[in-house]
Simulated scan of single mutants.
Amino acid sequence: MARPTGETEGEISVLIVEDDAPTRWRISDALSQAGGFQVMEAANLSEARALFAAAAPNVLLTDLQLPDGNGMELIREVRQRSGEIEIMVISILGDEQSVISAILVGANGYLLKDAFPTDIANTVRELVRGHSPISASIARFIVRRTQGRQGPATQTDLNTAKLTPREIDILWGIAKGFSYADIAAHLGISRQTVPGYIKNIYRKLEVNTRGEAVFEALQQGLIKL
């Protein structure tokens, strides 16, 4: 397998396929600033295929909805060519059906588009180490699917994480995109206490990012947007 141009020994080469430029740049910057990554970018399937023909990367990060086709095609093609390349779907919140389909054709995990920069780099590194970065939310969705339990959460599924009313209020603020200061002001609490609440929320929901926390809360019917 040819090494991408400019890659140095020990670096992880990553191809980002995403037609939304700001999203693509944000992911690229997160990896570049973390260090240890050599990043290539493509805005559509044609560009991605051309880059793969020149030199296959270690990791493919691809959106599914692209201007000239579906990223599922690219995942299938890449997986047929090589079982060594790690593949991750760039997903939006609540797009679990597409994530499941991508996993079935060869993806190893998924990355939410609104993930924090440190989460982006860490998730890619976890993928390369042989892990499959799939949140508890997606894992449970897979279980429900295999058990024939598709559909919205039932009343008995609600708040299985045992979130407190205050934690649910803070989770709603996270879902709305409020800053820590905004959440604190809205709830009349100290801004310094918000990170502690969020840490507890992540632990109880078994998630690692804001997007995953919101997705799980929506699945359980804890909040509505």
Rank of each mutant, 00 (worst) to 15 (best):
residue 11 E to Y: 04
residue 101 S to M: 13
residue 29 D to K: 10
residue 195 P to A: 09
residue 65 Q to G: 06
residue 220 Q to I: 01
residue 150 Q to G: 13
residue 110 Y to W: 03
residue 92 I to L: 06
residue 17 V to Q: 04
residue 199 K to E: 11
residue 85 I to R: 03
residue 220 Q to D: 09
residue 107 A to L: 06
residue 75 I to S: 03
residue 80 Q to V: 12
residue 13 S to F: 13
residue 153 A to N: 07
residue 105 V to I: 14
residue 157 D to S: 09
residue 9 E to K: 09
residue 170 I to G: 00
residue 164 T to K: 05
residue 215 F to E: 11
residue 2 A to G: 00
residue 50 A to C: 12
residue 39 V to R: 07
residue 17 V to S: 04
residue 141 F to Q: 13
residue 116 F to P: 00
residue 213 A to I: 02
residue 43 A to Q: 13
residue 46 S to Y: 04
residue 85 I to T: 14
residue 101 S to F: 09
residue 119 D to Q: 09
residue 50 A to H: 14
residue 160 T to N: 12
residue 129 R to K: 14
residue 15 L to V: 10
residue 118 T to I: 14
residue 183 I to C: 00
residue 96 E to S: 06
residue 136 A to N: 10
residue 25 W to M: 04
residue 169 D to V: 00
residue 2 A to W: 00
residue 144 R to W: 04
residue 178 F to E: 08
residue 147 Q to N: 06
residue 90 I to A: 01
residue 154 T to S: 04
residue 84 E to L: 11
residue 43 A to S: 15
residue 147 Q to I: 00
residue 160 T to R: 14
residue 125 R to Q: 15
residue 155 Q to C: 02
residue 132 S to T: 02
residue 222 L to H: 11
residue 69 G to N: 03
residue 125 R to P: 15
residue 137 S to A: 15
residue 56 A to L: 06
residue 91 S to R: 01
residue 106 G to C: 02
residue 195 P to V: 13
residue 29 D to C: 06
residue 218 L to T: 04
residue 125 R to M: 11
residue 53 A to K: 13
residue 145 R to F: 09
residue 163 L to F: 05
residue 138 I to E: 01
residue 16 I to M: 05
residue 174 I to M: 15
residue 145 R to G: 05
residue 150 Q to E: 12
residue 72 M to Y: 03
residue 18 E to F: 02
residue 69 G to P: 01
residue 27 I to Y: 14
residue 81 R to N: 10
residue 86 E to S: 11
residue 37 F to Q: 07
residue 91 S to N: 03
residue 172 W to L: 05
residue 128 V to P: 02
residue 225 L to M: 14
residue 121 A to S: 15
residue 59 V to T: 05
residue 90 I to E: 01
residue 6 G to L: 12
residue 109 G to V: 12
residue 162 K to T: 03
residue 220 Q to M: 07
residue 162 K to M: 09
residue 188 G to R: 04
residue 102 A to D: 05
residue 43 A to M: 13
residue 4 P to W: 07
residue 20 D to W: 09
residue 6 G to A: 12
residue 104 L to Q: 13
residue 108 N to D: 14
residue 58 N to I: 03
residue 83 G to T: 15
residue 208 N to A: 09
residue 115 A to S: 14
residue 76 R to K: 05
residue 120 I to F: 04
residue 210 R to N: 14
residue 83 G to C: 07
residue 103 I to G: 04
residue 13 S to E: 13
residue 200 N to C: 03
residue 177 G to F: 04
residue 100 I to W: 08
residue 4 P to Q: 08
residue 18 E to M: 03
residue 60 L to A: 01
residue 136 A to R: 13
residue 154 T to K: 08
residue 222 L to Q: 09
residue 41 E to V: 08
residue 36 G to S: 02
residue 11 E to D: 06
residue 84 E to V: 08
residue 129 R to C: 08
residue 160 T to M: 11
residue 150 Q to T: 13
residue 11 E to F: 02
